[in-house]
Design a protein around this nucleic acid. Structure first.
Lengths: 136, 136
DNA sequence: CTACGTGCAAACGGTTTGCAATTCC
DNA sequence: GGAATTGCAAACCGTTTGCACGTAG
């Protein structure tokens, strides 16, 4: 529920923050670069600066409201997604940039096993498959 | 064997290229940023420019002599590794930056299964575990 | 000899930041 | 009113590039 997330993060409820969070929550698109989000808001007629989009997304990241990914495939941009679903990994089309989320219990389990074997405490992980979908 | 790799890539055998490849082949360290490699060569007394290190590493990447990774954890730098071993994934310490390679047959298999399920043709994948080793 | 490679310094692109003006509570 | 936030433009940092000079074959 929108505004309380912002407040819970210890942040003031400002127009830019509400606009960004609302856009993330209301859009079908789940994966955004800062630039894309900025452009979308601008074309919605909102008045906001790219610097603020970056600042807010970084704050949201620290508050665990969004996740930041690096699909370093085509570009070096960060990609942000609302952190409102179960953990998942990603398949990224190198052709169209399309992103699909997936989850595989076995992969998760095996990762934990590997970590154990190496006496490694996993704090996070990133798994991205790059390729193409048959229908594109 | 060193020089023929360079030649096979359609590249002239120049001093900078030989120095870089030799360093990669002779060092225990397997994962290098361009800057680290540059500094190491400089402190070896070599004369080379950072731009050349970048150019050569990019050429080597295209020739499949090295692999480029993005352990986007601590920084946004590319990390390069000599492509002279079997495929593997990485565990990266968020504390020390230490990188350990691992391979898990099951994870590879499950990735292929997931891809099949989504009618996705995997061309590449990146799996990185971030955390800490017990002994650091 | 000449095509290819290099060093330098300047440009690049995504992101961050200092500062003065504005907004939230 | 005062602390937090914003917009702007400039800085930043890793990487790339144009160009004049150097070097491999």
């Amino acid at each position: 529920m929108n505004k309380s997330d912002i407040k819970n993060a210890g942040l003031k409820i400002t127009l830019p923050r509400v606009k960004i969070l609302t856009k993330l929550e209301s859009s079908d698109k789940r994966h955004w670069s800062a630039e894309e989000l900025y452009q979308e808001l601008i074309s919605d007629g909102e008045i906001i600066s790219l610097a603020t989009v970056y600042r807010v997304l970084t704050q949201f990241e620290h508050a665990n409201i969004v996740l930041r990914h690096h699909f370093d495939n085509d570009s070096t941009q960060s990609v942000f997604e609302l952190n409102n679903t179960e953990h998942h990994d990603h398949m990224v089309s190198i052709k169209t940039g399309k992103v699909v989320e997936f989850y595989d219990e076995d992969i998760e389990k095996r990762q934990k096993l590997v970590a154990k074997k190496y006496k490694f405490k996993i704090q996070d992980h990133s798994l991205v498959l790059y390729g193409e979908f048959e229908d594109e």
